[in-house]
């Protein structure tokens, strides 16, 4: 029991370190878009980027929490992991909604025109549109009278789509992830996600 508490604390600590390290990316790997922002605009842009990164990390943790890894089940119990998955899902949803508000706010809410060169931004918009029913149906599945198996099929089908869209968006929307450590870490996270999904999908 004592050993389990230690492992639980270690797990939470690792999660905290990963989240904190990811949040430092907009400081240590500043994209050129930051140069031209001052005062409140700069604060909003950087915070917006941090919220985007928080959303990404929490989404990756969602997969880890739902992957039924035996070691996690032993340390945290399946029930707790499910609770974390639910809470984490709500937090990342709020974070995902704040992200574009701050990014657009830094440009005084001038929405980029519908041009092909803004495709990474539009992937992000599409991602939010997919995320919204994904989360709402999970929260209100019973209230909406949605059959559990139907919801589960919807959830399991859409989850990899969301992750793929997330990686495409993150890799292309910011210069911070074009090269260097952020690029390698995001790529590594992507490979871990592929492994976790394959592990669940394959017999």
């Amino acid at each position: 029991m004592k050993n389990n508490s230690f492992l639980r604390l270690t797990g939470i600590f690792v999660f905290g370190v990963v989240l904190y390290a990811a949040c430092t990316i907009p400081f240590y790997f500043e994209s050129p878009s930051m140069y031209y922002k001052t005062g409140m605009d700069r604060l909003m842009l950087r915070s917006g980027k941090i919220f985007g990164i928080i959303t990404t990390v929490l989404l990756l943790f969602q997969v880890v929490l739902a992957s039924r890894l035996q070691v996690l089940n032993q340390v945290f119990t399946a029930k707790k992991l499910f609770q974390y998955h639910r809470t984490n899902g709500l937090i990342l949803f709020v974070s995902a909604m704040i992200h574009p508000i701050l990014i657009l706010g830094a440009d005084h809410f001038v929405f980029f025109p519908f041009e092909s060169r803004y495709w990474p931004e539009f992937i992000g918009v599409f991602l939010l549109m997919v995320l919204l029913p994904f989360v709402l149906l999970s929260v209100w599945q019973k209230k909406l009278g949605l059959n559990y198996n139907t919801w589960k099929l919807f959830h399991k089908t859409l989850a990899p789509v969301i992750l793929i869209l997330l990686f495409i968006h993150a890799m292309n929307v910011s210069r911070s992830f074009e090269s260097g450590w952020p690029f390698y870490l995001l790529s590594a996270a992507g490979l871990i996600m592929v492994f976790l999904f394959a592990r669940r999908a394959l017999p």
Binding site: P32, S33, Y36, D41, D107, H108, V110, F112, E115, R117, Y118, E121
Partner: peptide, 14 residues
């Protein structure tokens, strides 16, 4: 693209 959106903002053309 990002610079162009900055040019469209209140900092420049509004």
């Amino acid at each position: 693209g990002k610079r162009d959106n900055h040019l469209r903002s209140k900092d420049f053309f509004d």
